[in-house]
Each structure stands twice: as C-alpha cells, then as structure tokens.
Write a protein that binds this DNA or RNA. Structure first.
Length: 826
DNA sequence: ATAGGGTTAG
C-alpha cells in the first residue's frame, strides 16, 4: 500500500468510511474476484466511481487478482461520468501492475475511449497511435474527439483511413463524420458519407439519419436535409430539431415555425432545443406572436428555464423590443453568465436606453463578471447611436487597457462610432491602426464614406482593398453604388451596378432598392419604377422597404396610375398587407397623387392605432389644406390614448400653411407648447415664419426668427424674401438676398427663391442676373421642377408638384404673361 | 445527433 502513487491516497480514506454492505457480510470470509467484479460493475454503472475504486483498493489489500475486465468496467464508469481524474488514477494502477494489463488489447482500447470521451485529446491520440489493433471502437472514439475539439479535417481523414483498412464505420462513427462535414460545409464529402450509409444499411438508424439531415442543413442544402428527414422511419424529437435548426441557420424562419406545429400535430413533445430554436426563428423574423407562442409552449411543457433557453427567450424579447418581458426573463434566470448580461445590455441599447445599459454594466461588474468583447462592442455602438463621443472614447480606452485593441469586431464598431460622432478622420485612424483588416472592416469605412456621399474616397478604398486581395462582396458593391447616388452621380451608380453583375456578384434586394431609392432621390422616379420591374424579372420579391420606395416614386411623379399598380401588387401579395410601414406609405402616396378619398379608405381599413399611420393621414389632409379634418383626426388620435408628437404638429402647421390660415396656425403653435409640452423644433418655426410671411406679415415673421432659440436657416430667409415682394419691400429683399448668397452660395434653392421673388416683382433684369449666377456656379435646380422661358432670355422657375410653396404667385405671373410665352414659343 | 450574445449595405 505504501507504494501506491500519491494521487490515489484520498481513495484509501473511504475504505474505513465505507459501511460493509449486506453482500459484503454474506461473503465476509471469502469474497471471490467474481463477486467483486459484479459489485464494481454495478457501482460503475450507477456512477459511484469512487466507491468502485475503493473496492479495487480493498481487493489489493486482500491480495485478490484484479482481472482486465474489472478495470474495463470501472473505466467505463469513468466514461459515463466523464470523470477524468479517477480514470487517470485507474490508468496509473494499470501501469503499475505491469505489461500484462498495460498491453491488454481490451484495456488499451478502453483507455483510448476513456481519454477521448473526456476530451483529453493528446492522451487518447498517443495511446491510439500505440495500438497494435485498431478496431471500430477505438476509431469511433478518436474520430469523435477530433470532431468535438474542432479537428474536423483530421476526423474525416480518420474516416477514410478506416475504410482503407477495411474497418467499417458503424452508426456511432457516422454521426461524428457527418458533424465534421457540416462544420466544414463539405457537402460533397457529406454526400459520399450518405452513399456509404445507404450502402451499408445504416440509414434507418435515427442517429445516423438525424445527423445526415443536420449535415445537409449545415451545408445549406435544405432540400436534401428535408428528403433525409422525410425518409426517417421513426423520427424522434432530435431529428425534428435538427431540421428545424437547419432552416433557421439558412434564414428560413417561417419554415422552422411551421415545423413546430407539424411536430406537435404528430404528438412529438418539444424540448428546450426546439423552443430555443423557434425563439431564434421568431427573433430573426420579428415574429412577436410566434415567439410568444414558443415561450408559452416552454411554460406549458414545464421546460426548465436553463441558461440557454433563458438567453434564447431574452434574445427574442430584446430583438422585438419587448424590453419589460426581457427584464422579467432576466430576473427569473438563476444562472446568468456574460452572454445573459450582454443580451439585456444590448436590448437596452436597441431601445435607446443607454443609461440603463450603462447601469447594467455596473451591476455586472458588482457580480464579479468581466466585460468581454461583446459587452464592449455593445457599449461602443451605444456611443455611436447617441453620438456620445465621451462614452465612445472611454470604451476605446478600456479596450486598449485590457488588450481588446486587436479585436476586429471592436475596431469596426469604433470606426462606426467615430463616424457617427462626426469625425471621419478618427474613424480612418482606427481603420489604419488595424493590421489584419477583414472584409467587414473595409465595408465599415466604405459605409462611412458612402453615407456622406464621399464617392471619390469610397472608390479609392474600393481599389485599395482589391490591391490588398480582399475581394468585395455584395455589401461592398452596394456601398459604392450608394456613395455615388448620395453624391448625385446617377450614371456612375448605374455603371457600377452593371459592373457588379459582370464581376459575378448578383445584385440582391438591397442593391436594387439602393438603386431605386437613389433614383427617386435624384429625381428619376420613373426609372425607379422601371428598376422595380426589372428586379421582379430577375426573380427577387420586393420587401416592405422596397415597396415603400416604389410608392415614394409614385408620389413624386404624382402618378395615380403607377400608384394603383403598386397597390395592386401589395393586395395580391398578402404578406405585405399587414405592414404598418406600407399602409403609411400608401396613405401618403394617395394623398400626394391627389386622391384623398382613397387615402382615407386605406386609412380606415387599418385596424390598429398607430401614430405614424395617423401622422400620414393628418399630413394627407395637410397637403390638401383640409385644416379642419387634420385637427379632427388629431383629436381622435388623442381619444385613442396616443399622444401626438412633433411630426403631428408639423403636419397640422403645414395644413395651415397650405390653407393660408394664420390664426389657426398661431393657435396650434401655442397649444403645442402650452398644452402638449412639446418644444418647437426648427421646422415648426420655419413653417410659422412661412405662414406669416405668406400672409404678408413680414415683421411678425422677422420677430419670430429673432425670438427662436435656433439659428435661422436658408428656408426661412427664402420665405422672407418671397414675402417681401408682396409688400414691395425691395430694400429688405435685396438685403436678404445678398445675405442668403453670402452665407450659402452653394444652395441652389436660394437662387431659385431670389429669382422667383424678383419675377413676382417684375424685375426681369434681376431674374436673369440671378439665373446667370446660378449657372456660373454650375448648380442644378432641384429635381421635379423646371425653368420655363417666358421671354427672350428670361426663365422662371416652376415646381411641377404641389409641394412648392411659391407656385401660386408664379402661376399668376405666368397667366399674366401668357401672351409673351406664346409668342416666345413660336 | 439537436440549442444562446456583439461588427458592414437600402
């Protein structure tokens, strides 16, 4: 006993503590090796390894022979319990007892299996390499451990080597092989394995078939995953789960949810894995009802809210914005780790509750949990959203101090943060500081340039990344397109759009929508509608956002014809009809196309009360100058318990503007401040100034500008300029015009306003002069408007839509000049 | 055999 290795010492202690069992008593004088074997075996099977081991010690003490089978049994017990420590002690005993045991084929194989199952890769590998005979069990063990620790290629090479040595993989080996194929996304290898499975008749085994379905799912071949699944004779819940996971991982969230109801119909009880997967699907598709259903199933089936199910729940409630539910789940979870905390923190950030997020971070530290790169990137994006440069810098300093500086994800968020806080230079500095730039980092800086319309910078970066052998993906191309469109370079954008295709990258939904949106914003709405058709021809289905863009194109064209056809498409494709976003755009479109009745119809057909939808309808009345209806609808909105926001008041004021109702406007403006406690924004002041100026109340308008807590913008001065002509305040007009052109010489709207003001006055020389200045500056008029030549060399600016404010005056001037125009056009 | 968190585009 004195020669026992030190690490077996603790086991001796239980010997005295072990109470003699009845069995023991019965054979107290001559317990045979065989009876020990049975007791060791049953203790091992019930997980009482330490008890079994103490029996071995007892046997040693009684000088009983310990056969290889008994070591095998106890090692198997260690495998069940994944008890590496005890297993090592047994290994030590085996070695001590000499080669008779150590070189026993059965024991050697068991040891390989034991170390492999305990994920002790090196130990099992060494023993495996020394095996003289490699049977299917040791092969299964070694392939399994390689697969678990991520050596997938090696696992597959093992599979091949087995076959070469004519050891045939069984239904324990194949699942691991499938897993390795899935992880590597080697679908062709996987297909080969599938062939072997069919040939060797393993395909009826649920384990094998489930792992095949899983493998096809991981490789993105969902059709084959489904086929394998459908042919499983007795599908268990794991098979269902595996297919479901495949769907979710390939973005087919609806299919995953459908699978949940199918399996319930077949009487299969969902497990935590099922619910967790469905919650992921629900979160991905913003399916509030689906997610709540999944949560309910978890409760009804009494599924314990463990860490993973809890975080899936938490993730879902955070993603769909139900932060109170998320908090409830968080409080109910017993074991919380960094992931749990990160989820709630990011939930707060997504809701704009940055203070709460920071508070959670502090609590997290009090629980002795450390921030990881996810926590930090969430905080960094919080800084970006709120343009909180101080917070952003603090996070970056923390990253540097705690060696997170090389994290590529954090670098991307830092680039984004600096850009959002207004410093493109610092964003570029962070970008430059990263040595191994990945595609996402390149795209992040590109998006910064694109967002600001810095197409030159974007294009240079586009070349640079290719020089550094980072091939652009669809997002990259889309950003280049966006950068051109934001800079008004429509033709360049179209050129890139076609180059993208010839480079072999298929334009996706975002590519097409970017083009459409850019075309609309650059005054090419008709072409935008053409793009919508081409997109559909290419086999892509527009989503809610692209439909919104198409509707805005119809609005700009004031084309009821196009508008109705898009509406028809929406009705035919039911999936969109429930989208508030689309309903709102429809109301807006019909209003701007002049069909207020249809706008009302769409509005009335909507069941839920939604502020943006009400705002759209109020703005529709505003466009028509229906002040009374607009105000009445605002009252109804308040009756349903929703508070009007500053957008509502913008619409109400603009209704007054269109109707020219000064006193109503003043009343609304006062109510907004005193009754609703809304602080007027610059736009509200702008509207008021415009209303007053249009009514000829230039002095009151001027006073309001002086009183307001903002700097006046060009639009306000433009309103004043336009009002001057009515009162023939030529001097003030001249002064304001000069002021405008001095402060914003590049704003084409200024020239247009000034030119029109002079036109209303009949000062044709000034009109010509202003237009010349504009031409010299190479400024373009805004889209959707035209210059109309009224006499030789004199052009006035006329807006083709109803949104331009000075149309009435100009049109009346044109009416007066009708004779001149006619003679001129001859 | 199956399950959880952060970064890029409209």
């Amino acid at each position: 006993m004195a020669s026992l290795p030190f690490n077996t010492m603790p086991i001796i202690l239980p010997l005295t503590a072990t109470k003699p069992s009845k069995h023991h008593d019965a054979q107290a004088h001559s317990p045979s090796s065989a009876s020990y074997f049975h007791r060791v075996s049953s203790l091992s099977k019930s997980g009482e390894i330490r008890e079994a081991l103490s029996l071995l010690t007892e046997m040693d003490f009684r000088k009983l022979r310990i056969g290889p089978e008994i070591y095998g049994e106890i090692l198997q017990g260690c495998v069940y319990e994944r008890d590496l420590c005890t297993g090592k002690q047994i290994h030590a005993r085996i070695l001590k007892n000499g080669d008779f045991y150590a070189k026993n084929e059965y024991i050697e194989t068991k040891l390989v299996i034991f170390y492999a199952k305990c994920d002790a890769f090196e130990a099992s590998e060494v023993l495996f390499s020394k095996l003289r005979v490699r049977n299917v069990y040791s092969w299964a063990a070694i392939i399994g451990v390689k697969c678990r620790i991520g050596l997938c290629e090696e696992a597959l090479m093992g599979f091949v080597e087995m076959l070469q040595n004519e050891i045939f993989p069984d239904n324990f080996v194949v699942p691991n092989v499938c897993k390795a194929c899935g992880a590597l996304q080697w679908s062709r290898f996987g297909r080969g394995v599938h062939g072997y499975v069919v040939k060797s008749g393993l395909h009826d085994c649920v384990f094998v078939a489930s792992s095949l379905a899983d493998m096809y799912g991981k490789c993105g071949v969902l059709d084959d995953a489904r086929k394998v699944f459908d042919e499983i004779p007795e599908r268990n819940v794991v098979a269902w789960n595996a297919l479901m996971v495949g769907y979710v991982q390939n973005g087919m969230n609806e299919e995953a949810i459908r699978l949940l109801s199918d399996m319930r119909k077949e009487g299969i009880e969902p497990t935590r894995v099922t619910v967790s997967t469905c919650l992921s699907a629900s979160a991905n598709m913003d399916g509030i009802e689906e997610g709540k259903q999944s949560h309910a199933i978890a409760i009804v089936n009494g599924l314990e809210l463990d860490n993973i199910l809890g975080t899936s729940n938490l993730n879902f409630y955070c993603k769909v914005g139900l932060i109170e539910y998320a908090e409830m789940i968080f409080d109910r979870m017993i074991e919380k780790d960094v992931v749990t905390w990160n989820l709630l923190i990011s939930g707060y950030v997504q809701q704009g509750l940055v203070e709460d997020a920071i508070h959670m971070c502090q609590l997290m530290r009090l629980e002795n949990l450390k921030y990881d790169c996810v926590t930090l990137s969430t905080l960094m994006s919080a800084a970006a959203r709120t343009q909180n440069l101080k917070l952003g810098k603090e996070v970056q300093c923390y990253c540097i101090r705690h060696s997170f500086a090389s994290d590529i994800v954090l670098a991307s968020t830092a680039v984004d943060m600096y850009a959002n806080c207004g410093s493109i230079i610092d964003a570029k500095k962070v970008f430059d500081s990263v040595l191994a730039k990945d595609l996402i980092l390149w795209n992040t800086l590109l998006s910064v340039y694109a967002e600001s319309g810095l197409s030159g910078e974007a294009f240079r970066l586009f070349y640079e990344m290719q020089l550094e052998s980072v091939p652009p993906n669809a997002i990259t191309w889309n950003l280049i397109i966006l950068s051109f469109l934001r800079n008004g370079q429509v033709n360049e954008a179209k050129e890139i759009f076609s180059q993208m295709q010839s480079s072999g990258i298929f334009p996706n939904l975002v590519s097409w929508t970017t083009m459409m949106n850019g075309l609309v914003q650059n005054g090419c709405s008709e072409e935008a509608i053409l793009f919508l058709r081409k997109m559909q021809e290419s086999g892509l289905r527009p989503n809610a956002f692209s439909i919104t863009v198409a509707l805005s194109a119809c609005s700009n064209l004031a084309s009821l014809h196009f508008g109705r056809s898009v509406h028809g498409y929406i009705i035919r494709n039911q999936q969109h009809s429930s989208s508030v976003l689309i309903e709102t755009s429809l109301v807006d479109m019909y209003a701007k196309c002049g069909d207020i009745n249809k706008a009302e119809m769409v509005f009335r057909s909507k069941l839920c009360s939604d502020l943006p939808l009400y705002n759209a309808m109020i703005s529709a009345y505003a466009l028509n100058g229906n002040v009374k209806e607009a105000i009445a609808l605002c009252r109804r909105l308040e009756d349903t318990g929703i508070k009007p926001d500053n957008i509502t008041f913008t619409s109400l004021l603009s209704a007054c503007n269109h109707a020219g109702d000064v006193s109503q406007a003043v009343e609304i403006f006062t109510d907004m401040v005193s009754k609703h406690g809304i602080k007027p924004c610059l736009e509200h002041y702008g509207l008021m100034v415009d209303i007053l100026a249009s009514a000829g109340e230039t002095d009151k308008a001027l006073r309001l500008i002086e009183e307001m807590p903002y700097k006046s913008d060009a639009r306000m001065i433009q309103s004043l300029v336009a009002s001057c002509n009515m009162k023939h305040k030529t001097e003030l007009m001249d002064f304001l015009s000069r002021h405008l052109l001095e402060t914003e010489p590049e704003n084409s709207g200024n020239y247009v306003t000034i030119s029109n003001a002079y036109a209303v006055e009949g000062s044709w020389d000034e009109v010509v002069k202003t237009r010349e200045m504009m031409k010299a500056k190479r400024l373009k008029k805004s889209p959707g408007c035209s210059w109309i030549r009224i006499k030789g060399g004199v052009h006035v600016f006329v807006a083709n839509d109803k949104t331009h404010l000075r149309n009435k005056e100009i049109r009346s001037i044109l009416a007066l000049l009708a004779y001149d125009m006619q003679t001129d056009s001859k």
